[in-house]
């Protein structure tokens, strides 16, 4: 998956030597002409690595990153070969972000499009307020995942923590393992044939080949909180 070391069209930048500001500025300027493949070395937990890209480029981040890696990503493929701090790919618009390791809380928060793949586990609030993004987690997710999730799909191949899908709107949730508990207005739903197809497609795009759609359960909104309850006692 990662770009080869000796590929001449790959630009390698080392965060141990180059300030993050310069690296992100270069990634933002790439539409004006520049390499389509990038390797970022020594992120060492830096925040906002590869945030705000808007170009069809590939970026391999070689190590652990801090908060908001690939934040608001558009069109780019960003692969993190390590763990991510809070808010990985927050508010992503399009493109793909792959986390080889684990992701901390609020992964994919408010994302509006594209695909976020987490090969390890995701902590609390995975997919919070998601608005059209697709998220596939090979491991498990923590509590309050998909809180107020509006649109998009969250696929969890492992378990989900407490209060899954609290106050959820129209997002589709699929969990293969156990669910610690469902949040307010979140209910189990029938896994119909179109959902099988949706799930199969998501697993395939995420490169997950050891999970069967039939082993998942679907959750979504009971839609009982969509409107205020107003009595008319007259």
């Amino acid at each position: 998956m990662r770009a080869p070391d000796d590929d001449p069209v790959v630009r390698t930048v080392d965060l141990a030597a180059t300030p993050l500001r310069e690296v992100n500025a270069a990634l933002h300027a790439v539409e004006n002409g520049g390499p389509r493949r990038w390797r970022v070395l020594n992120p060492r937990g830096a925040h906002a690595v590869a945030a705000g890209i808007d170009a069809p480029i590939e970026v391999d981040v070689e190590g652990h990153v801090g908060y908001y890696c690939a934040g608001m990503n558009k069109r780019a493929m960003v692969r993190v070969h390590g763990n991510c701090g809070t808010g990985a790919a927050e508010n992503m618009m399009s493109g793909t972000v792959v986390v080889d390791g684990n992701a901390s809380q609020s992964a994919g928060a408010t994302g509006r499009g594209g695909l976020l793949v987490i090969r390890g586990d995701a902590a609390a609030r995975c997919g919070i307020s998601m608005k059209g993004l697709d998220i596939v987690v090979r491991g498990s997710v923590g509590h309050m995942s998909a809180f107020m999730a509006q649109r998009g799909r969250l696929v969890v191949c492992g378990d989900a923590g407490d209060a899954l899908g609290d106050s959820i709107y129209e997002a589709h949730l699929y969990v293969r393992g156990d669910v610690g508990g469902l949040g307010a207005d979140c209910v189990g739903k029938e896994l119909r044939e179109d959902h099988h197809a949706e799930l199969r497609d998501l697993l395939e795009r995420a490169g997950v080949d050891d999970c069967e759609p039939a082993d998942f359960r679907r959750y979504g909104s009971a839609r009982r909180l969509y409107n205020f309850h107003v009595d008319h006692a007259e």
Binding site: L20, A48, G52, Y67
Partner: peptide, 10 residues
């Protein structure tokens, strides 16, 4: 950190 991210993006 959030403010830093917004500054980076813009």
């Amino acid at each position: 950190i959030k403010i830093h991210e917004l500054r980076e993006i813009t």
